[in-house]
Design a protein around this nucleic acid. Structure first.
Length: 488
RNA sequence: CGGGGAGUGGCGCAGUCCGGUAGCGCAUUCGCUUUGGGAGCGAAGGGUCGCAGGUUCAAAUCCUGUCUCCCCGACCA
């Protein structure tokens, strides 16, 4: 069994760290809370990025790039925005070092006139720029996205889930009307839902955040929310309707058809490398990472097995043909012909790395015209006919993708409860975990009390109307049940 | 940032209480034998014991400071 991975049952946190290490996704850097993303992790992010980028382009967005550094004064222009981010900003104060006794020191002479903030998010610098881009209704909408890194000075970090520096995309759009901006916000939420479910095979709920959980500076924050294997929720993506807050703060107006000058309506939306954490905690097991085929950089690995040089030649020849056949079909395939590891070692290594399918071919297979095909998700292997292998593998990759989603969805179903009263609610949160639907009176006071009592937060309020009822805490009227969970 | 735990070759650990100049397993390199679930034998290489001070004839071990990681809290994508 997996030698270096703690079982989920024994210690889920340790398991997560072990999987990240064994799958070679990332490691800690010498800088507190900052990680090195290793090639395997970066490849995963690049695959996510590619799929998302295409979806953004398909919905009319373009990429741009804005500076890493934001003048301090920009950040103070939108009151609630500052309030939200002030406590977690890295600040650049000097521009030079000088040598002192063989070491270096900050040169006090180089103090900046205006300090620069390392972007925690880019609304301010982008809206400062949009002011110059927008004069007329003809300049709208602006549909821009950027792929970037951001820094948030976090107290407590966890690889991928919360690091001080992380990679993400942030979309920032400008619109002539409120209606259009809201539509954009919801459209991108739907893009995120589609991506999470179709590519990551991670079922998500969509909804709107409570005022307390809202993005600093937003009128409304929409989110996709996933459930991890340990019963904790993960906010996997957010889409914000920003109203006219940033247009006001940065004086961004346009002249409309009627000749009137009007404030521009805004949205912003983002997902980050946190998704990799979500992916790990949705599918992976005690053998390591499990990847959905659509996001796996290597979908199929071929492991040749042989004794003599003669067998080696024969087996590799056989394997090469399969390799070429699959490559032509567009399957991302790798032939592991390293001679310094034995097959068992390779099996374990590829399992830890989450490669969806493994083909093992040895002399017996060559002789009988078949291969051994192993599914990573089910840890199941079968001898199958060599002929028609390509079509079978294509099908199987599709099956894995679908079954991973179904399995995750089923688990989420099992881990979702409804609470009729507060005692029941507390009991579920404490003993079972997972998502809990319950009535809430809509007040921040009740929300806060529940959080204090149980550590569970309102993950979202559904977009569709639900059945009315009474708040489980206050007994006051509730318009619908909302979704609770303890979260990452 | 508060409470708890921890940092010793790439990884996992022993040694720390009671100071005497660093060891084990895996990994690495070379050779031979192996290869259908993490191979065997033989040989070899690799560590200023997180870092910086201090005590001492002598520090992985004692003292002070500091950095990083893990868990729990407050804060957050």
């Amino acid at each position: 069994m997996a030698k270096n991975i703690t079982s989920q049952e024994k210690d889920y946190s340790q398991w997560y760290l072990d999987v990240v290490r064994e799958a070679k996704l990332a490691e800690h850097s010498p800088v507190r809370g900052s990680m090195v993303i290793r090639p395997n992790g970066m490849a995963l992010w690049e695959n996510m990025k590619q799929a998302l980028d295409q979806m953004f382009k398909d919905t009319g967005h373009e990429n741009a790039y804005f500076p890493l550094f934001i003048p301090k004064s920009f950040l103070s222009k939108e009151a609630r925005h500052v309030e939200g981010f002030a406590k977690e900003c890295a600040v650049v104060t000097h521009s030079r070092l000088k040598s002192v006794d063989g070491g270096v020191e900050v040169d006090p002479e180089s103090r900046l006139e205006e300090e620069l903030i390392v972007r925690p998010t880019s609304e301010t610098i982008i809206w400062d720029t949009y002011r110059n881009w927008i004069q007329s209704y003809r300049d709208l909408p602006i549909l821009v996205n950027q792929w970037a890194n951001v820094v948030r000075w976090e107290m407590r970090t966890r690889l991928f889930l919360r690091t001080m520096e992380f990679l993400w995309q942030e979309g920032h759009t400008a619109h002539a009307t409120e209606e259009e901006a809201v539509e954009e916000t919801l459209q991108m939420l739907e893009v995120y839902r589609t991506f999470a479910e179709d590519f990551m095979a991670m079922p998500v709920h969509t909804g709107v955040k409570t005022a307390g959980e809202r993005f600093a500076g937003a009128e409304e924050t929409y989110c996709i929310e996933a459930l991890m294997q340990d019963g904790k929720a993960l906010q996997a993506g957010t889409s914000h309707f920003l109203g006219q807050n940033f247009a006001k703060a940065f004086d961004v107006k346009f002249q409309d058809k009627d000749g009137q000058h009007k404030l521009v309506w805004a949205t912003s939306w983002g997902v980050s490398t946190r998704l990799i954490g979500g992916l790990i905690m949705t599918h992976s097991d005690d053998q390591g990472l499990v990847l959905p085929p659509k996001l796996a950089s290597v979908q199929v690995v071929i492991v040749p097995i042989y004794r003599s040089d003669e067998q080696r030649k024969e087996v590799l020849e056989y394997a090469d043909k399969i390799y070429n056949e699959l490559e032509e079909l567009g399957v991302r395939i790798k032939l592991d012909d390293r001679d310094n590891y034995n097959p068992g070692y390779k099996f374990a290594e590829h399992e830890a790395a989450g490669i969806p399918l493994r083909i093992a071919v040895g002399p017996r297979d060559v002789e009988n015209n078949n291969v051994e095909l192993a599914r990573r998700d089910l840890l199941e292997k079968n001898i199958v006919d060599r002929d028609g292998i390509s079509a079978k593998i294509k099908d199987m990759l599709d099956d894995i993708q679908n079954e991973l989603f179904e399995k995750a969805q089923k688990r989420r179903g099992e881990m979702t409860s409804e609470a009729g009263n507060y005692e029941e609610f507390k009991n579920i949160i404490e003993n079972k975990g997972g998502f809990v639907w319950a009535h809430w009176d809509g007040t921040p006071e009740t929300e806060e009390k529940i959080k204090e009592d149980t550590k569970a937060t309102i993950r979202l309020i559904p977009l569709e109307d639900g059945e009315e009822g009474e708040c489980m805490v206050s007994g006051k009227p509730s318009k619908q049940k909302v979704l609770f969970a303890r979260s990452y």
